[in-house]
């Protein structure tokens, strides 16, 4: 059985499974896309954002105490 037939029989044959897959996939996609986009964004702006430079000042504050 070819890959496409397997795919069809697994996900697309029953509408309930199809719709369920779409919504579950939307949930997973939302998280995954968010993570991916944020990772790319942080990579692109490496060293510029607050989370990249925060450690300097947190350590400095702790040393003073």
């Amino acid at each position: 059985m070819s890959f496409s037939t397997t795919l069809y029989n697994t996900f697309f044959r029953r509408n309930s499974i199809f719709v369920g897959t779409v919504f579950a996939g939307a949930f997973a996609f939302g998280i995954g896309f968010d993570t991916g986009a944020t990772a790319f964004f942080d990579r692109w702006n490496r060293g510029k954002q607050w989370k990249d430079i925060r450690h300097k000042y947190v350590e400095a504050a702790e040393e003073e105490e």
Partner: peptide, 8 residues
């Protein structure tokens, strides 16, 4: 277009 501020 996708550059953040330089927070330092």
């Amino acid at each position: 277009l996708i550059d953040t501020f330089d927070h330092a």
